[in-house]
């Protein structure tokens, strides 16, 4: 298609139009390396201090030491009992997280989309959120029993609020000029939701997804502490009661690794979806 008069206006990108592009990319790589090295050194120093103080300044049965923890961890991972604990906790985590995320996002969306519903229910949700959620653990135990479901309930409860607030606030801060401009072009409501509102929620949704991972872990472990016969939290409690500090810390290491794996998955997903935010 040939458009008339295009030669008259095809002014090349003028002097004022500077593209903010990949500046200093070469320096970024070496700076990363320095940061990484420093991090490794910092962790090594902390572990070294722990090893040194243990048994000399603080009793070993209280804080164990990195070498023992590492050995205990290696031993534990050979046992099928520990893998059963891990598998139980992972199930509780995944189901609880999923339910909390979906529930929080749906309610956040609904209350954000319908202004009236938002003004009615937001204060009520704030009130419920005011309950210290740990206090509900016995209630969930009563309702859902000893198995995974009391832990799922506890985790999803915590994650729900994290997700709800992110999506709800996200809905309220969809830039109106953006929806206006697309609206003036003749877009239907459905188009605006699909192409403007939904993408603009991507950032708060990912904020909620990320914050939700450690919160889900807190929920699950609290549930397991209150009453359980399986799970990493259950194992940690057992180890503590037997003054097995190495076991206790090994359990904690496993929890941390789980959270990090969860965050890695969310981050990988985010990098794909939020491509437009990257350099």
């Amino acid at each position: 298609m040939k458009l008339a008069g295009q030669h008259e206006v095809s002014t090349a990108v003028a002097s004022g139009d500077v593209v903010p592009d990949a500046r200093g990319r070469a320096g970024a790589g070496s700076r990363r390396l320095v940061v990484l090295t420093t991090q490794v050194v910092a962790v090594a120093v902390i572990l070294g201090l722990w090893q040194l103080l243990s048994g000399r300044v603080i009793a070993t049965f209280l804080i164990s030491n990195p070498a023992d923890v590492f050995k205990k961890l290696a031993d534990l991972l050979q046992t099928s009992a520990m893998w059963q604990n891990i598998s139980t906790t992972v199930q509780e985590l995944v189901v609880g997280y999923a339910l909390g995320v979906v529930g929080g996002a749906l309610v956040g969306w609904a209350l954000g989309a319908v202004r009236f519903a938002g003004s009615v229910f937001e204060p009520i949700i704030n009130g419920v959120n005011g309950i210290p959620k740990i206090a509900l653990a016995p209630v969930f135990l009563l309702w859902f029993g000893l198995g995974i479901w009391s832990k799922v309930a506890q985790a999803s409860m915590v994650v729900f609020f994290v997700m709800f607030y992110n999506v709800y606030m996200g809905m309220r801060s969809v830039p109106k000029p953006l929806t206006d401009v697309v609206h003036v072009m003749g877009a239907s409501r459905r188009y605006v939701v699909r192409k403007v509102i939904f993408p603009s929620l991507a950032v708060p949704i990912f904020a909620g997804l990320k914050a939700g991972v450690p919160f889900a872990m807190i929920g699950v472990i609290v549930g397991e502490f209150v009453a359980a016969d399986k799970g990493v939290g259950y194992y940690v409690l057992e180890a503590t009661q037997q003054y097995d500090a190495a076991g206790l810390f090994a359990g904690i290491v496993i929890m941390v690794v789980m959270v990090l794996i969860g965050l890695t998955i969310v981050n990988a997903f985010q990098r794909r979806v939020l491509r437009w935010q990257r350099d």
């Binding site: 458009l3 295009q6 206006v9 095809s10 002014t11 090349a12 990108v13 003028a14 004022g16 139009d17 500077v18 593209v19 903010p20 592009d21 437009w276 935010q277």
Partner: peptide
């Protein structure tokens, strides 16, 4: 026509105000 040829795959954030 508006002189943005070559920038088709850029995101708005990567453009100057004039662009």
């Amino acid at each position: 026509i508006v002189g943005l040829g070559g920038f088709e795959d850029h995101y708005p954030r990567q453009l100057s105000g004039g662009m």
